[in-house]
């Protein structure tokens, strides 16, 4: 594998096998994250973003989750072949995760200092006292007074709790930080603060980050690379510039069309027609075809492969329509 990659996921397939149905949550995702880069994984609820993230830590709840195939290379080691003690060593030390809801991500009966110190004690072999001191430093780093290390989570506001969660995640200087919708549960002003803090810390500590979100604004603010997920497959990926300014996939276009435009406030939003397909009953061929305004019969025949966009080394798209060299998205037709 490539030396500069912190994370490389190859053809990951994860199913949730319940008695009622076989849910195809992730259907062959490929992701690479290079050192010091931030990748945004964008998609609707249920697109398989969180499952992908949990797979990286090999934490997909089993049963019912089963990792069917694929490889997850983390700094030269395949996560899916790690032994339990190697996994425990990797989790928190090499890869840390920030969860969605800071309100429930902290243990209510432990002081925040102890909770930050716990991971330090575990991975850096410090004693309780030294770990607590380090925890205080971490608190200071995320902008919380050191004296509050003795307080319990219920004495913190939501934004501060998320700062504590970030402090826990960064306590052992992981190489990769997975942030699963870290700002969804926060209000907009706090969101901005938390994102700014994360950006700054990641730069300081030279970490890579996988940011999972459905908020394109957050992606634009934080990420260098973007991957758009639909029904457990990546439909488009590239640098932020590629995806935001030169989008190729109809689904990406649909996402942007459904955002309000600040410059033309009177304009009506254009939603994507229909609903996301039931992951236990995906349509044949391209999963987006039933909702796609450009769909042709060819779309329902085969699942389109992720192919490099002409003239770009970074930009990939999975869409059958580009078999026709003259095909252009509506957005790209005029002016480009």
């Amino acid at each position: 594998m490539n030396e500069d990659l912190v994370l490389q996921i190859k053809d990951l397939v994860v199913h949730y096998e319940t008695e009622d149905a076989d849910v195809h949550a992730v259907n062959g995702i490929d992701i690479e994250i290079a050192k010091k880069r931030t990748l945004g994984l964008v998609g609707e609820t249920g697109a398989g973003k969180t499952t992908t993230a949990l797979s990286i830590l090999n934490l997909v709840p089993n049963p019912p989750g089963v990792i069917k195939q694929g490889e997850i290379w983390l700094d030269g080691e395949n996560v899916l072949e790690m032994k339990p003690h190697e996994l425990e060593h990797m989790r928190g030390n090499d890869v840390a995760m920030i969860f969605q809801d800071p309100m429930t991500a902290l243990n209510p009966v432990m002081t925040v200092g102890d909770q930050i110190g716990e991971s330090i004690m575990l991975h850096q072999g410090l004693d309780k006292k030294a770990a607590f001191e380090k925890a205080k430093e971490m608190l200071k780093m995320v902008g919380i007074a050191e004296s509050r290390a003795y307080d319990y989570p219920h004495q913190f506001s939501g934004g501060m709790k998320q700062r504590v969660v970030i402090a826990i995640a960064l306590a052992c200087n992981p190489k990769l930080l997975i942030a699963d919708e870290p700002t969804t549960a926060l209000d907009v002003t706090i969101q901005a603060q938390v994102l700014e803090l994360m950006k700054q810390l990641i730069r300081e500590k030279e970490m890579s980050m996988l940011l999972i979100t459905h908020d394109l604004g957050v992606v634009a603010e934080v990420c260098e690379d973007v991957a758009v997920v639909y029904a457990g497959r990546i439909v488009e990926k590239g640098t932020a510039d590629d995806v935001f300014n030169h989008m190729r996939h109809p689904y990406t276009e649909g996402l942007f069309d459904s955002l309000p435009n600040l410059k033309q406030r009177g304009e009506e939003l254009v939603p994507i027609q229909g609903l996301m397909p039931d992951p236990s009953d995906l349509p044949p061929g391209c999963a987006f075809a039933p909702r796609c305004p450009y769909a042709t019969e060819a779309c329902t025949k085969a699942v389109p492969a992720l192919q490099s966009v002409e003239g770009s080394a970074t930009h990939f798209v999975a869409c059958t329509a580009y078999a026709d060299p003259d095909f252009k998205l509506r957005r790209n037709r005029d002016g480009k």
Partner: peptide, 28 residues
């Protein structure tokens, strides 16, 4: 099933420690 238990897994804590330090104190 609380998120802080999931996050202790993500932190690399062994299962017995999660039960003793995170789950049981909350059942007290």
């Amino acid at each position: 099933d609380q998120e802080y238990v999931e996050s202790s897994y993500a932190m690399g804590l062994p299962t017995w420690k999660i039960i003793v330090k995170h789950i049981l104190p909350n059942c007290l």
